[in-house]
């Protein structure tokens, strides 16, 4: 029943720049079931966007999938040609990009940017596509939709553009929606409405969602699973409650301490994680978090910890959890 819509195995993505090879995604594996909502968290530069773009075959020069495979909805993404990818992009999988202000074409009206994706993937006439566009803008909570369709991106606020992007992504009822910080520019009320809308559509179409976010309240609200990324790796993965209340990796714990506690009434002091992110040009031999980890041991510097299963659907890569070490 719960079949996999997405199955990523041993994925490695590098950017070959003049300075050298940047290992943006380093050996990640990930499964996503039909209708499942996965959150991806991790600090800036940890590879969240790059990993998710690869699902659409959107890694551009100088980036390259160095290893691994991506199976999405019975397609093998990494070997698909341009033409085949065009058929699924925007239709079976769509994405809401991170920066709404630069992600829409400044010279085309909102309407034409919304209608073109509908025309491309359905048999609708221009008129029917326009009706659908009106409906979609209504869904994401926009007023005076007819007028809005004729307007240009510069006439919209960041939050409005983000909603337009969401409407575009939802236009052809995708099997998988990738939302890359798709609610950051929205105020709290609108954000709650949009999340509610996504959950409704997910239920109706059994759409899966990947939510990339820095916001643990979004995670707590709609995600079933969470992947924590650090230096291009998934260092911890689990059910939302496991990650939020029973984190096992030192980095996840640090990340949670650095965020306002959403459920407790106790106002804990926020503790930012000390140190700076890993240099992806020269990734360390051992645990990438070692230079910043308070519990760092000798072995952490020497070799990379393996994934350790803690319970069903919960695993992490940290030497502290290797029983062998203690016994």
């Amino acid at each position: 029943m719960n079949s996999c819509i997405l199955d990523i195995r041993d994925l490695e993505i590098s950017f070959f720049t003049q300075a050298g090879e940047i290992k943006a995604v380093n050996n990640i594996s990930l499964q996503l079931k039909d209708g499942e909502v996965l959150g991806i968290v991790g600090e800036s530069g940890s590879g969240k966007s790059v990993a998710s773009y690869s699902i659409m075959g959107l890694i551009a020069e100088p980036g390259k999938i160095v290893n691994g495979n991506i199976r999405f909805n019975n397609h093998t993404i990494e070997t698909m040609g341009k033409k085949e990818l065009q058929k699924i992009r925007g239709k079976e999988v769509s994405i809401v990009f991170q920066d709404p202000n630069t992600s829409l074409n400044p010279l085309l009206s909102i309407g034409s940017q919304l209608i073109e994706v509908i025309i491309r993937h359905t048999n609708k006439t221009k008129k029917e596509a326009k009706e659908r566009a009106v409906e979609l803008l209504g869904l994401v909570g926009m007023n005076e939709v007819d007028k809005r369709l004729k307007q240009y991106p510069y006439e919209f606020s960041g939050g409005m553009l983000q909603r337009v992007m969401i409407a575009i992504a939802l236009a052809c009822e995708p099997k998988l929606l990738i939302a890359d910080e798709a609610t950051t520019a929205l105020d709290a009320t609108i954000q709650a409405q949009i999340l509610e809308l996504l959950l409704q559509i997910k239920k109706k179409n059994s759409m899966s969602i990947i939510m990339i976010t820095h916001d643990f309240s979004v995670i707590a609200n709609i995600c079933e699973k969470v992947a924590v990324m650090y230096a291009g790796r998934i260092i911890e993965y689990g059910k939302t409650e496991d990650i939020l209340y029973n984190p096992k990796h030192q980095y996840t714990m640090g990340l949670l301490k650095a965020t306002p506690n959403i459920n407790s009434h106790i106002h804990e002091k926020l503790v930012p994680i000390k140190g700076s992110p890993v240099d992806l040009l020269n990734p360390p031999l051992g645990c990438p978090f070692a230079p910043r980890c308070e519990k760092c041991m000798k072995i952490c510097l020497r070799s990379m910890p393996k994934n350790k299963v803690i319970s069903d659907d919960h695993y992490t890569a940290c030497w502290l959890l290797e029983k062998k070490l203690w016994s």
Partner: peptide
């Protein structure tokens, strides 16, 4: 530009 990537992501 980002909007070119968006155009590609729509399968155009």
């Amino acid at each position: 530009q980002d909007y070119i990537r968006t155009a590609r992501s729509k399968g155009l």
